[in-house]
Design a protein around this nucleic acid. Structure first.
Lengths: 187, 187
DNA sequence: CGCCGAGTTGAACTGAATCAAGAAACGTGG
DNA sequence: CCACGTTTCTTGATTCAGTTCAACTCGGCG
C-alpha cells in the first residue's frame, strides 16, 4: 500500500489523518491473468489503484473486441463513465497479467470528500492530469496517421510492446493488426 | 451573470457566501467576431464562461488550420493544457460570433478553492462531465467512420451547422471539407 | 458589374481494411 | 523432452473510404 501513498503524493501531499482515513477505505485485491475486473452490463462501483500488473478495457463491436485503453502499475483504473453516472458499463476490464489492486467504493470516496477537503483536491488534480492525457490521445486519434501513432507509442511507453499482444495494441491505436505488423516491418 | 450561476447550479448548488465570492472574481468580457481570445505561444491564464456567442479552438498544422473544438453559450472554455500546466498554448481561440464572456484567473480560482471546499467540489464535478464528453469524442474519432461521426453531430448538436462554416466542422470531425460535402449530399 | 469566400463536384491517388493463407511461438499433457 | 493444438504474428492480393488537386457554382457585397 506504500506505493499508493507515494504515488498520491506526486499529485498532492496529504495530512496524516487523511492518509489514515484513506488507508481504512482501500481494500486489497489479487487477480490472476485473464480474470475480469468488470463485465459489460455491470455498474462499476469502485475506483482501483493498480499496484502491480496490467489490464485492458475493451468493448465488443460487431463480434470483435476493441481495446481502447490499458492500465499498468501506478495507474488509477475504473470504467469512468459507469463509475460516475452509475449506469451500466459498455466495456469490460480484463487482467493481462496477475495483478495487485487496491479498491475503494464510490460511496466511501464521497464520504472522504466530505470529511477531507484535501482528498477532494487530490482527486481534482488527478482529473486534470488524466484529462490532459486523454486530450493528447484524442488529437493523435483524430489528426495523426497510423505510423505516427505507433511511433508516438514507442517513444512514450515502449514497455507496452513486451507485455501486451500485438492485436490489442493495434486496436488501442485504432488500426488493424495486419497494418500494425506491416508498420513494424518497415523499421 | 445570472446565467453563469444558473448553469453552475446544474453541477452543484453553492452557498450564498461562495456565490458572492465567485461574483467578485469574474470579470465581464465582450469580444466581436474574428477576434482572438488566445494566440498560440501565449500562456492561457484564465478560465472563461461563455454566456453568449460562439468560438473555436484551432492550431496550425502544415500551414492548415485544424479546428479541434467549439465553444457555445453556457460552456466553460480555456486552453486546458496551457491553463493547467502554465506552459505556452499550441492552439488559438478565435471568436466565431460576437460574444459575452466571464473570465476568472487561475490564481483567483486557486484562492477560491482554498476558501471554499464547495467550489473545488463544483469544479471536480464539472471535470467529470467534461471528461466523459471527451471520452465519447475520442471513441468516435478512433472507431467510427466519417459518416457516422457526422450523423452523430447532427443528433447531438444540429444547431452547430447553421452557425459554423462547413470547413471548420469538417476539421472538427477529422475529415476534409470535400468529404463532408459529399456525405451531406447523400442525405 | 466583377470579385471573393463558401460550398460542391469530378477524377486520380493512397493509406489502411479486409480476406485468406502461412509461419512462428507457446503451453500443456503425455 | 517431444508432439500437438492454440494463439500470435506475418505476408500477399484485393477492395474501399477518404484525401488531394482542380475546376466550377452560387450568393453576397463593394
Amino acid at each position: 500500500m506504500q506505493q499508493l501513498f507515494t504515488h498520491i503524493t506526486n499529485y498532492h501531499p496529504l495530512s496524516t489523518e487523511a492518509q489514515n482515513a484513506l488507508h481504512d477505505c482501500f481494500e486489497k485485491l489479487t487477480l490472476s491473468k485473464n480474470e475480469y475486473l468488470l463485465n459489460e452490463g455491470q455498474v462499476c462501483r469502485h475506483l482501483y489503484f493498480l499496484e502491480d500488473g496490467a489490464l485492458r478495457g475493451f468493448y465488443n463491436l460487431d463480434g470483435k473486441e476493441v481495446t481502447h485503453w490499458f492500465g499498468f502499475e501506478q495507474d488509477f483504473v475504473t470504467s469512468f463513465h459507469s463509475f460516475i453516472t452509475g449506469r451500466a458499463a459498455v466495456e469490460n476490464i480484463q487482467l493481462l497479467e496477475g495483478s495487485i489492486l487496491w479498491a475503494i467504493s464510490k460511496e466511501q470516496l464521497a464520504e472522504l470528500f466530505n470529511r477531507f477537503h484535501e482528498i477532494e483536491r487530490l482527486v481534482r488534480i488527478a482529473y486534470e492530469k488524466y484529462y490532459i492525457r486523454l486530450e493528447e490521445r484524442f488529437v493523435n486519434a483524430q489528426f495523426k496517421t497510423a505510423t505516427e501513432r505507433y511511433e508516438n507509442l514507442l517513444l512514450q511507453s515502449p514497455h507496452i510492446l513486451e507485455r501486451v499482444p500485438l492485436g490489442h495494441i493495434a486496436s488501442y491505436l485504432g488500426i488493424s493488426q495486419e497494418t500494425l505488423s506491416r508498420i513494424r516491418s518497415k523499421l
